[in-house]
Simulated assay, not measured.
Amino acid sequence: MSVEIELCGVRVRYGPLEALHGIDLPVPSATVTVLTGRNGAGRTTALRVLAGTVPPTAGRTLWRGADVTRMPAHERARRGLCLVPDRRAVFTSLSVAENLELAPGDPADALAAYPELSRLLDRAAGTLSGGERRMLAVSRALSAPGRVVLVDEPVLGMSPGVAARTHRLLAGLARSAGAAVVLAEQRVPSGLPPGTLVHGLRRGSLAFSGEAAEFTRR
């Protein structure tokens, strides 16, 4: 399996606190990679460094071997990187329909993934429940999948059935579109495809790296 994007010896400091302690994090193409750990473990920071929204204090980000450490987030987005953050992932003052229209791709694909949104098209996104907002945010990534898809807390607030569907849809991006899909989760979701990789983070360091089956046997 080829590495699509990776962190090499990355450190990130927020003032006096170091959030990542020199981690190496390879992300293969056509694969689901899960970053797991408790709050404060460094999962979100790792995603943000990959996306270019947080600069590393030390280390490099490589995309297909090319150093993109200094490449701004908007340029990475143009090259096919999609980040769905855990917060502020939708435009709350706009309607659901307007949010979908702003996303690249066909809004019909987003509604096929989440038909629940069809009855909410005229609603302001800020009035949606937490689970509905997550559906809207993730649907935008699904309607126009990129080469690298980063999703922080993808199923936050969703019902179990919708959460399971969301994981299937995201896994489908890796399987059918060949995308490198990275999910930041507090625990490893069930039902992900064989070959799913897991990186367990603890206090800014990698405590485990391997396949999901190995992680669940620990």
Rank of each mutant, 00 (worst) to 15 (best):
G210I: 03
P194Q: 10
V181D: 09
A125Q: 05
E211L: 01
A103W: 01
S29A: 15
V148E: 03
G9V: 07
A125I: 02
G37S: 09
A125T: 01
L170C: 13
V198K: 07
V27S: 02
P56H: 06
S143V: 01
G42Q: 05
G131D: 06
L117T: 09
R168A: 15
L120C: 09
R43I: 03
D122K: 15
V155P: 02
G131V: 08
V68R: 14
S95K: 13
S118I: 06
P145Y: 09
L47M: 05
L120F: 06
A179F: 04
R123I: 06
S118C: 11
E75S: 05
A73I: 08
V3K: 04
R60C: 03
R175D: 14
G195T: 07
A113I: 14
M71F: 05
L47C: 02
R76L: 13
D67F: 14
L128A: 00
V10K: 02
R218N: 06
R43D: 02
L20P: 01
R119E: 15
G59I: 04
G22V: 03
P107R: 06
L142C: 10
C82Y: 07
G59Y: 01
R217Y: 02
L120S: 08
E214N: 02
W63T: 10
P26V: 10
P56N: 08
G146H: 10
G22M: 10
V181S: 07
V162N: 04
D106L: 12
S2H: 11
D122C: 03
L20K: 11
P85W: 00
